[in-house]
């Protein structure tokens, strides 16, 4: 049993190549998980669709969109953003499971690029969320949602949604490393739902009591939702407040701020992992 020990690369280009290769390996690992659990993936992709149908057809009849327009078209940007928010649970569960099972420790004791652990996770989760967005776009088109300002605006909106998802990666990684195990997923779900509801995703903040409306208006999720409504055109676009007037800028700023806070926290936590 002789295998030559590949020395850890010493040069910067060598290290970067190694980091890229290790990141790919771990992305492939996450994708292999989904290949082995197609049912779970299908449920994950279809859940937001069910939510759209519930909101759109059960509650939608009673909803009036301020400024006019169809409620089903109004909620689609909100549901896109909710889909990104649910992705936080995927990231959290995967990170917490690896940490609890000792897989993270095994990686950390190996001569691999330590960045690959998060790079692989992040790339896989972005792929997952992009797939979810594709499904949701199809669902939206079927129930009457359209982009009214050309494909450029539509793509910009989808880009902002993925930027939000990117920011939420670090929140998921950090919470996953802090948690005691994947059992804490329930706690994350309890966190996710109020954040989703207290936003402009499903209801216009202008219809809420004053202070609640202000809180919803400044929710990072609302920035992305409102920006998407602007970029897609159609129902719910526009609005009087400063936040909705600058929604695209905020939809860029919020994810960057979240990343600036949670990325260092996640890195620090990863370095100091110890039981």
């Amino acid at each position: 049993m002789t295998v030559s020990v590949p020395e850890p690369p010493g040069t910067l280009p060598g290290r970067l190549r190694r980091a890229a290769a290790d990141g790919r390996t771990l992305t492939a690992r996450a994708l292999a998980h989904w290949a082995r659990r197609p049912g779970e993936v299908a449920v994950g992709l279809l859940f937001p669709v069910v939510l759209v149908l519930m909101m759109g057809y059960l509650f939608g009849g009673q909803m009036t969109v301020p400024g006019g327009g169809s409620y089903r078209e109004f909620i689609m940007p909100g549901m896109f953003a909710m889909t990104m928010l649910f992705g936080l649970e995927t990231t959290f569960a995967a990170v917490a499971t690896d940490a609890a099972k000792g897989v993270t420790d095994r990686f950390r004791a190996m001569p691999m690029a330590s960045s690959a652990i998060v790079v692989g996770r992040g790339a896989a989760d972005l792929i997952h969320s992009a797939a979810a967005l594709t499904v949701m776009t199809g669902c939206g088109l079927l129930i009457g949602w359209r982009w009214h300002d050309g494909p450029g605006g539509a793509l910009a909106g989808l880009g902002l949604l993925l930027l939000l998802r990117f920011a939420l990666l670090w929140v998921g990684v950090y919470l996953g490393l802090v948690a005691n195990g994947p059992e804490s997923l329930v706690a994350v779900q309890i966190l996710v739902w109020p954040v989703g509801f207290l936003s402009s995703a499903m209801v216009a903040p202008s219809t809420m009591p004053g202070w609640l409306g202000t809180a919803a208006e400044w929710n990072p999720l609302s920035a992305t939702v409102t920006a998407c409504r602007e970029l897609f055109g159609g129902a719910g676009a526009g609005g009087g407040s400063w936040a909705s007037g600058h929604s695209v800028a905020l939809a860029v700023a919020w994810p960057l701020l979240i990343t600036a806070v949670f990325f260092p926290l996640a890195v620090r936590r990863h370095r100091h992992l110890s039981r």
Binding site: V5, P8, R29, H33, K101, G102, D105, R106, M110, P111
Partner: peptide, 15 residues
């Protein structure tokens, strides 16, 4: 790290 193997308390494999 290039010279060690570690088998931790819980079998740390991808389940």
């Amino acid at each position: 790290r290039a010279r060690i193997g570690l088998v931790g308390q819980n079998a740390a494999v991808d389940e």
